[in-house]
Each structure stands twice: as C-alpha cells, then as structure tokens.
Amino acid sequence: MSTEANRVGGIWRFLLACWKANFASALEYRLSFFLLAGMMLLNNLIWVFFWQLFFSRFPVVQGWELRDVMILWALSAGGFGWASVLFGNYGRIANIVSSGQLDVYLSQPKPVLLHVLASRMSVTAAGDFLFGWLIFAWVGDHTIRGFLLFVAGLLLTGLLFMGLMIVVGCIAFWYGNSEGIAGQVFNSFITLTTYPSDIFRGVARTLLFTVVPAGFISYLPIGLIRSIDPAFLIAAVSVTFGLMAAGCTLFALGLRRYASGNAITVRQ
C-alpha cells in the first residue's frame, strides 16, 4: 500500500519535473514564446471573426448559432491546448518511433509512454489554451455548472486528441515511416473538430462518429454545453477512454515488437 503510494508519488514528482523543465525551456526564448502563443491566439480569433461574418448572414444554420460555434472553437482549441502543453509529444509518436528516439526513454526507469508524452511542450498550444478560456469568458455560461461542463468538455477533447494520435502514431511500430500519414490525420482531425457536426449529412456524418471520431468533439457544444444529451455523452466518454486504452495497449504491444525486433529495420 505505502509502496504503491510511493510509486504514484514518484511518477507525479517526475511529471512535475518534466513540466518544469519544459516550461523553463520555453522561457529561454521568452519573446518567441509569447509571440508564438500570441500568434495562435490571433489565428483563432480571426476564425471567430470569420464565423461572426458568416452568422451575420445566416443567423441559424442547422440549429447552430454563433455562440455554439464559438464554444466549439473554445473546446477544440482549449482541449488541444492543454494536451499539447502538458503532453506535447502525443502528435509526434510516429516520428519518435521511426527515428529510433525510443532508446533513450527505454534506458530510463519511467513508464515509457508517459515519459515520451511529457518530454515536450508545444509553445503555440499555450495560446490555444488561453484562447479557449478567453472565449469562455466572452460567451460561456458563467455559473458553476457552466464552468464544470466547460472543464469536462476540455478534458474530453484533450483526451480524445491524445488517444487518437497515440493509436495513429503506433502504426509506426508496424509500418516504419508513417510520419506523413500521422501528420495528415492529425491536421485533418483538428480541422474537422472546428466545424459544427450538424452541417454534415449522410455518410460524412456517419464517418464523423466512427472512423474519424471528430464528431464527438464537434457536437459537444450542443450535446454537453447547451443541454446534456446522455446518449451522446456516454458514447463520447466511451470512445475517448476506448481510444486511450487502445492507444496504451497498442503502444505496449508495439514496444514488445520493437524489443523483440523481428521486423524493425536495423538502424545501427
């Protein structure tokens, strides 16, 4: 019992040390840090501006109003933001695996996946995270319930981004150089999470809630924030945790495959 508590405490202290080092690294270039984060914030605000122009022409589109799309942007950018600040390597797993950078993590006594994920902090993502809260302050529901729902939305979004990208990144264990494909999936996924899910019809909509599960993010403003839709929420939570579990399992399998090294191209 106490050893278990010790272990958890050790991991926690280790994560804190990683984040501290990441943050210190980012601060080494204070100016570019604020510039990059600020640029991302501006970028997102310009999209909000676009949506304002759009909704000034079409006030309601498939039941969505400007406020819903703004909340969608807040959730997508904010969720992406915290995940990329704290676990900035989740989108680069394919790259790390296929370029042989795993060895360093493998020779150290910490959980490999966690160590990989926490070893990088995305600087621009800090701007995304800030943007999320800015929009919440602007158009969010400023009650305790509204706050908690927004936090829950951010959590789900970030975990879904991470789960998906871990699963996709693990392809590299089996197929070598898959950075290009992984990057493409990542970008497309991010793009898809920033458009109201209800504009999509037919097959596209089905895909959005199955193969490319961006729909579980892009329906959050309606199915979680506006009013809780239990069926959707249960599906979203299970998909998120399912992807996370699948990602961790695949990574463990991949490591075993990497270690037994039967099919990996030799890189001496």
């Binding site: 898809l192 458009y195 504009i199």
Partner: peptide
C-alpha cells in the same frame, strides 16, 4: 491536394446547410 479535398468538402457541406 488532400488538404484541398478536405476543405472543399467541409465548405460544400457548410454552404449547403446555409
């Protein structure tokens, strides 16, 4: 090209809805 495909598809859906 694949980016173009995605963005055109998304906007076709958006404008159709609008």
């Amino acid at each position: 090209a694949s980016f173009l495909l995605l963005i055109l598809f998304v906007f076709e859906q958006l404008w159709s809805a609008a």
